[in-house]
Design a protein around this nucleic acid. Structure first.
Length: 158
DNA sequence: GCCAACGTTGGC
DNA sequence: GCCAACGTTGGC
């Protein structure tokens, strides 16, 4: 059973172009420090799941690429690195608190902007559009996934 | 830069 | 277990 997800990244941290340029077009999704988002990675994600790559906290927030989950969840090394902004002194190596998955870019798309998403009646239930939604990882319904890919003119690769 | 919304922390 | 205070997210 393939699931679908929307994952937010600040382009000033890791942009869709950064992800594409990475070895294997694959990046480790570091820095998730929210339990709900962590649990989605740990309990919900499977290798091969579809990912909508979303740019947040930028001039034109929106979906900018299609990716796939490329690993199972494993401990995020940045939680143990005192030099990292994601360092968590309360996390113990024998009981890691924070996890990540590898995410592989499949293709860059045009920017399907937040404004455009909001304008779609059929996408009204998309979690990322909810008022005050701050979750960096949210599940996406298959119907929403299909509709978004259609809007992007992308043949479903997953 | 502002601020609404939300999650986390910690005193009690 | 409650809840006020605080910190963060993220659109605008």
């Amino acid at each position: 059973m393939t699931n679908y997800w929307l994952m937010k990244s600040e382009p000033s941290e890791v942009s869709v172009d950064d992800a594409l340029a990475a070895p294997g077009a694959t990046v480790a999704w570091t820095g998730v420090r929210n339990y709900q988002a962590r649990n989605f990675m740990r309990d919900g994600m499977r290798i091969g799941d579809g990912v909508l790559f979303y740019h947040s906290s930028c001039a034109e927030p929106g979906i900018v690429g299609i990716a796939r989950v490329a690993s199972a969840a494993y401990p995020d090394p940045t939680q143990f690195d005192p030099q990292s902004p994601y360092f968590d002194p309360k996390s113990q190596p024998e009981a890691p608190r924070w996890l990540l998955v590898d995410v592989q870019m499949l293709q860059k798309t045009r920017n399907l902007t937040l404004a455009e998403l909001r304008a779609s009646d059929e996408l009204r239930e998309l979690i990322v559009l909810r008022r005050g939604s701050r979750l960096s990882i949210t599940p996406v319904e298959p119907e929403h996934w299909q509709l978004i890919l259609k809007k992007l003119g992308v043949n479903t690769p997953i």
